[in-house]
Design a protein around this nucleic acid. Sequence first.
DNA 1: GCGAATTGAATTGCACGCAATTGGGTCCCG
DNA 2: CGGGACCCAATTGCGTGCAATTCAATTCGC
Lengths: 153, 153
Amino acid sequence: MTDESTDDLALGRQICFPVYAASNMLTRLYRPALGPLGLTYPQYLVMLVLWEEAPQSVSSLGARLHLDSGTLTPLLKRLEASGYVTRARDAEDERRVKVSLTEAGAALRARAEPIPRKLAGDLGLSEAEFDAMRRSVWSLVKALETPRDAGLP
Amino acid sequence: MTDESTDDLALGRQICFPVYAASNMLTRLYRPALGPLGLTYPQYLVMLVLWEEAPQSVSSLGARLHLDSGTLTPLLKRLEASGYVTRARDAEDERRVKVSLTEAGAALRARAEPIPRKLAGDLGLSEAEFDAMRRSVWSLVKALETPRDAGLP
DNA sequence: GCGAATTGAATTGCACGCAATTGGGTCCCG
DNA sequence: CGGGACCCAATTGCGTGCAATTCAATTCGC
């Protein structure tokens, strides 16, 4: 019915769909590795950010991950319930909430360390292919960070 | 604290994260365009598949979009409530549910037609960059479709 | 300084995603 | 042809995502 090579609405011509599908598939791929650590995939991403720098405010986590407080607040409460982080109002500015790593949260890093290499291997890509793909997807994020909604000057 | 260039857990070295971030950002990008049509982004993807071929079973939609019935059933009920599809048991095999386009669902295609080109333009990428990126992300999906869970010889 | 605008997090409501389970329908094998 | 294995959709429960709203804390304007 539709012509794959010319129809703008063909699923195979979209860029949004493969990104969406790959995101879901990666979440599924990570689940078995993260389950034993007591983390979901978004929680794992939050921990990656905290392992780079802690404590951090909710909003700085959100800026890094492109998530807002509506998503992060309940997620951080679960991480707190799991014993990996603590949440406390910042004495300097009572509006902010500082998210800190607990001992267990910091220790978890060692158990997470082998995950990226192992799962990257599961993709069956060469080092070069992997790097090219990573660069490509990051540049898509960059493009999406620069809104062109209203048209430039 | 962490060294961006050598630490496997650095956010900037992941491939999973930019895919995740881009997926969320694309959903946000599409929202203003899809809202007037009464569609969410996942509903739009279902409509793309149905515009290529209808009717289809729930499972064939799921195979195409990498989604299962737990996600699709309530989504399709909402599309049905919106008047864009109908759901009916297949007389040939009562286990299957055939999802068909209504008149309104088929007509919606015309209103959706300008969306891909418009939003692709919002990315501010050249045709060549866009094509390279699309190819790259599709090949990631391909890699993810080939499970290597158990380790090869 | 003092009220208004702004900011930061939390809350609410809705729509996914998916594992796990349920239950009816079909196929297969003896 | 009878029963068990398998298949398909629906349901349940939980954890995101996000718009919209709320509320407290801070900053800005004058």
